[in-house]
């Protein structure tokens, strides 16, 4: 019955007074639900395959790809590494990683500012077809360079690593809190440039810990190798834990 005029069948009446027959529908659905469900499936697949998956998030140019190049050099005789590269355009980053002799695929989002669980799912299946893609211990997913949007999308990673380079300034945690709240590890990169910039590692890590007291923090320089041992040990421990726990979640 029409609440306004009381007629029995609102869809058939034709009187021309000014009211509408609107209805309210309760939905209560998360807009992240679809992505989260697929991210969960990705994580289970990584668990079943014994792969540790890390999602690297930072601004453009903070040294994610350079850190990966040096990480691969240091660890490729110990563990098998695979990489999914996310960028808006070009294969440039994948070419740099491919030159290191590990399986890699490039996802180009064609304008989108972040990766999501669907892209990661498709990317991983492409990676499995690459040489060595079926025996990966440690998967790096290098997100699109952006400190804002990627932090909203779970890809199915086990841990999220946020990076800030010395030239960017120490105020990034305070300005972009979500990336630091949602991460497990915070890495300050390019510490070889500390003499040339007004960057306080204590301020950056202090602000990040203020947002997320459980955050693991480290600072390093990929090019000089300073602080790299802590980063490499962290990675090896994750791989070790995954191997010991079998296919149980990290």
């Amino acid at each position: 019955m029409c609440d306004t005029c009381g007629c029995p069948n609102p869809s058939h009446h034709t009187h021309d007074h000014d009211h509408t027959h609107s209805r309210t529908i309760d939905v209560h659905t998360s807009l992240f639900a679809a992505n989260d469900a697929l991210a969960k499936a990705n994580r289970e697949h990584f668990d079943d395959s014994g792969i540790v998956a890390l999602n690297l998030i930072s601004s453009p140019g903070s040294g994610k790809t350079t850190l990966l190049e040096h990480t691969i050099d240091a660890l490729k005789n110990k563990i098998s590494i695979g990489v999914i590269e996310g960028d808006i355009e070009t294969e440039k980053d994948a070419e740099r990683i491919r030159a290191k002799g590990v399986p890699v695929i490039q996802l180009t989002t064609g304008g989108a500012c972040h990766l999501d669980a669907t892209m990661t799912h498709k990317g991983f299946h492409r990676l499995e077809k690459e040489d060595g893609g079926k025996s990966i211990d440690l998967l790096f997913i290098e997100n699109v360079g952006n400190l804002v949007c990627p932090s909203t999308f779970d890809l199915g990673e086990h841990e999220r690593v946020v990076l800030v380079s010395v030239p960017e300034g120490p105020d990034k945690p305070a300005k972009y809190p979500k990336a630091f709240i949602s991460s497990q590890t915070f890495v300050v990169t390019k510490t070889d440039l500390l003499p040339y910039f007004d960057f306080s590692v204590a301020e950056a890590t202090g602000d990040a810990l203020h947002l997320n007291p459980r955050l693991r923090t480290m600072d390093l320089s990929s090019t000089t190798g300073e602080g790299m041992d802590i980063w490499l040990n962290y990675l090896l421990e994750l791989v070790d834990k995954m191997k010991k726990n079998g296919n149980r979640k990290l």
Binding site: R23, T24, T29
Partner: peptide, 11 residues
């Protein structure tokens, strides 16, 4: 942390 579609009104 969530983004939820709670209700819609339509005709």
């Amino acid at each position: 942390e969530d983004l939820i579609l709670n209700r819609i009104e339509m005709e």
